[in-house]
């Protein structure tokens, strides 16, 4: 009897894990099998045509890449600087506890709230208008807590002896960080940054009102222009288009490209972490 209950119990745990795998497998299978049929070189390199019922998604890909670059330039330096402070300088006092609490809570702020903040502060307050810059900064804020957390983790994994070695040779604290701590943490920082950016690239809510456009005939010529983006393109192709059933294959194709984009970044991060883990076990 006890064996019977144990058998049922353990297998129900196994079943729940299988169910989770099934969800992932199903989503991937559906998008990759149905999106695969529209995928071609011209789908990736063409502009949308005929009211977006034909053609490709090139401007959406370019827009996502561009806005992610702005996010990178903003979030990575600030994120790394804040993480260096928390990992190398911060003692356990109320200011630093407040900083840590703020970062943890920033990570839990809903993405649409970042969108509201972007509208009020970047688009309106600073007068950037709906633009690549306003969207990139908004996504940067969203990514910041993630970059800080992963970078701090990476810095903490650098052995203490590396710091002490530099200090013993007469280096200042900053010199020891620059020459010994940061280089040792690079793989971890890069992994975290890639994962943070892959999230930013897939976000829709923060860019809805800060610069993304339904359809543009030209690529943005600078960071003050509006842009098209992959996640937003998927959103309009599946809910806002006037002929939703007709463009469904194109929506699947867009979903496929978006997922591939995010997964490639994730696999890249995974490989860097994997390679580094095997190397640095001294």
């Amino acid at each position: 009897m006890r064996k019977m209950i144990q058998f049922i119990g353990i297998n129900s745990l196994r079943l729940s894990a299988i169910a989770v795998l099934f969800f992932l497998g199903f989503i991937l299978w559906d998008i990759f099998s149905k999106g695969g049929s529209v995928l071609s070189v011209s789908f990736l390199s063409d502009y949308p045509r005929k009211g977006m019922t034909e053609g490709g998604i090139f401007p959406a890909i370019a827009g996502t890449v561009l806005v992610t670059m702005v996010t990178t330039l903003f979030a990575i330096p600030f994120g790394i600087a804040a993480a260096i402070y928390l990992s190398e300088y911060a003692t356990d006092n109320w200011v630093n506890r407040l900083i840590r609490a703020a970062i943890r809570n920033l990570a839990g702020v809903p993405s649409i709230i970042y969108g509201l903040f972007g509208v009020a502060v970047f688009v309106e307050g600073l007068g950037l208008g709906a633009s690549v810059l306003a969207s990139g900064l908004t996504l940067g804020l969203l990514t910041l807590p993630y970059i800080i957390t992963t970078t701090e983790e990476a810095l903490k994994n650098v052995p203490h002896s590396w710091r002490e070695g530099a200090l013993a040779l007469g280096a200042t604290k900053w010199e020891s960080i620059r020459t010994n701590v940061l280089p040792g943490a690079v793989p971890g920082i890069v992994t975290g940054a890639i994962l943070g950016l892959s999230r930013a690239a897939g976000e829709t809510a923060p860019i809805l009102f800060t610069g993304v456009a339904f359809y543009l005939r030209y690529l943005p010529s600078g960071i003050h222009d509006e842009f098209m983006a992959l996640p937003y393109h998927l959103y309009i192709m599946s809910t806002q288009h006037h002929a939703i059933e007709v463009v469904r294959p194109l929506a699947y194709g867009t979903a496929l490209v978006l997922l591939s984009f995010v997964f490639i970044l994730n696999i890249l991060a995974f490989l860097i972490r994997y390679r580094y883990q095997n190397k640095s076990r001294i």
Partner: peptide
Amino acid sequence: LAAIPSVA
């Protein structure tokens, strides 16, 4: 699974 964008 966590990496899949919410729009997808």
